[in-house]
């Protein structure tokens, strides 16, 4: 399973969902089959697109860097942006677009402040971990932020955080997630 059940659980049953960077459509298929949801994925990669079509999951081939103009304001109950924000040049703009298109936004991204990362930076080296498996010179993660950073960005963009937690080795971390979790998860809406 390529998605975390804790994230699926954040999506209210019956929601109309837009999954930005939906990959092979596994989460969307789960939400449709088991939570009565409907919706679309957005995906750039040809192989992932094909996997979605094979599953029977609606998918729109689009580069997220080119924006979400094709989607109307507040046209989805939930917009998911899982493990994609860190790859986008216009990450803040995409966050705003997520909040424009969806009534609820759910994002996840690698938490740079997870303690092993902090240790590696203290030794003078950029971290290479399971959540951040790349070298500094070849990483697709062009936006590296922390759990705490996102709270500040959300405030700046007038997003009200409805729920937030960390994920570490498949477990939900609600105590000191900025230190103890490799992945940050936020559920938010517009103020």
């Amino acid at each position: 399973m390529s998605f975390d059940p804790a994230i699926a659980a954040l999506v209210p049953p019956g929601s109309r969902v837009l999954d930005l960077g939906c990959g092979t459509g596994e989460l969307l298929e789960h939400l449709i089959k088991h939570q009565g949801c409907s919706g679309y994925g957005v995906e750039l990669n040809d192989a992932n697109l094909l996997a979605c079509v094979k599953r029977g999951v609606n998918v729109i081939q689009r580069n997220l860097e080119e924006g979400l103009a094709i989607f109307e304001d507040q046209s989805f109950d939930v917009v998911l942006q899982l493990e994609t924000l860190q790859h986008l040049r216009n990450a803040e703009q995409m966050l705003r677009e997520t909040a424009r298109v969806g009534k609820i936004g759910i994002v996840s991204f690698p938490n740079f402040a997870h303690w092993p990362n902090r240790l590696q930076v203290l030794t003078g080296r950029m971290p290479v971990t399971r959540a951040l498996p790349y070298e500094w010179y070849d990483t697709p993660n062009i936006r590296v932020g922390t759990f705490a950073d996102f709270e500040i960005l959300a405030r700046k963009n007038r997003l009200k955080i409805l729920d937030s937690f960390g994920l570490q080795a498949g477990r939900v971390v609600r105590t000191a997630p900025n230190l103890l979790a490799s992945v940050a998860v936020f559920k938010f809406e517009r103020e």
Binding site: Y40, I60, E72
Partner: peptide
């Protein structure tokens, strides 16, 4: 999409 029809592109 505006009409909430099922579509893949």
């Amino acid at each position: 999409l505006d009409n909430r029809l099922e579509v893949s592109y």
